[in-house]
């Protein structure tokens, strides 16, 4: 089967399949309105409880020694942290994917690659520490998955020697130290190891973070030229900075004033402005701890 045969086949599948009656727009609208009301009620409740949470958090910080934290996120391993499953990739032994190191999918959940992702996460936490507090407990909506976490993903094999290309994505949920109740945002670092296909030009490179697009400008930081997209077209991120080392390692750092990628009304716990200024964010892309293999 080639691409055209699959294309034709899918259209024939749809032609011979008996489709149910058209969905009712009013039913869909009612469900959407209910979800909208639930969201507003949730945030109203969250606002009412914020004072209690702040008191509890203050107590915890007063009692706990600072600086120590457990690695939390998809790549962390441990008896209480079952890795997310991709379902069919594990159940279906017939697939011909050849993930390295005995993995069942792209993600390395333990071992050296996961440790590297954790190290990048630790470096990112340390980098934001002067101005921002890391929220280790924040979870994605309707999920137990923590926002603050790391992921090591196999990307591809490149070149004649089939060099493994890896991607490390780390995210920290952050709040302002000066205004802890001012919402939660995110700072992210995304690293591609050498062998990736990203362009060398930083202003061709930088808009490619998550395909976010936007107008790029160069900026000289510590004697090196980095790319800066101050207004990406993708609303999930507010700023992206990109840099490519001579050996091909690509590092992006990005930030969002939102705590997750959910689209919604503005009042959902977001920060009023992005967590960092461009002058604070840009040097982070050159953090030597992000240049990993």
């Amino acid at each position: 089967m080639n691409e055209q045969e699959l294309r034709d086949g899918l259209r024939q599948v749809m032609a011979v399949s008996s489709q149910p009656p058209t969905m009712n727009p009013n039913t869909a609208l009612d469900a959407a309105r209910r979800a909208h009301k639930r969201r507003r009620a949730t945030w109203a409740g969250a606002g009412a409880g914020a004072a209690v949470v702040a008191l509890a958090a203050g107590t915890v910080f007063a009692l706990a020694p600072s600086g120590d934290s457990l690695p939390i996120g998809p790549a962390a391993s441990g008896p209480g942290l079952a890795p997310p499953s991709t379902g069919a990739a594990e159940a279906d032994g017939s697939t011909k994917t050849s993930w390295p190191n005995g993995q069942v999918d792209r993600t390395a959940r333990n071992g050296a690659r996961a440790d590297t992702a954790d190290a990048v996460l630790a470096a990112l936490k340390a980098a934001v520490a002067p101005t921002l507090a890391v929220d280790e407990k924040r979870t994605y909506p309707n999920s137990d998955a923590k926002v603050t976490g790391s992921q090591a993903s196999f990307e591809d094999r490149a070149g004649p020697d089939k060099q493994e290309v890896w991607q490390y994505l780390v995210t920290v949920a952050v709040t302002s130290k000066s205004a802890p109740a001012g919402g939660t945002g995110r700072v992210m670092a995304l690293v591609y190891t050498p062998g990736n296909t990203y362009p060398a030009d930083v202003c061709q490179l930088t808009p490619k973070f998550w395909g976010a697009g936007g107008q790029c400008e160069t900026k000289v930081v510590q004697g090196k030229t980095v790319g800066v997209v101050a207004k990406p077209e993708d609303s999930r991120v507010n700023t992206v900075v990109g840099y490519r080392y001579d050996d091909g390692t690509v590092v992006f750092v990005a930030q969002s004033k939102d705590p997750d990628n959910e689209e919604g009304s503005p009042a959902k716990g977001s920060m009023a402005t992005p967590p960092l200024t461009i002058d604070q964010l840009a040097p982070m892309v050159l953090n030597p701890a992000f240049k990993v293999t």
């Binding site: 699959l6 086949g9 899918l10 599948v13 379902g87 069919a88 990739a89």
Partner: peptide, 16 residues
């Protein structure tokens, strides 16, 4: 029958 294709498609891992 092209419905065989549909049955096979369901067995392809979700990402692919």
């Amino acid at each position: 029958d092209r419905m065989v294709l549909h049955a096979a498609l369901k067995q392809v891992p979700p990402g692919q």
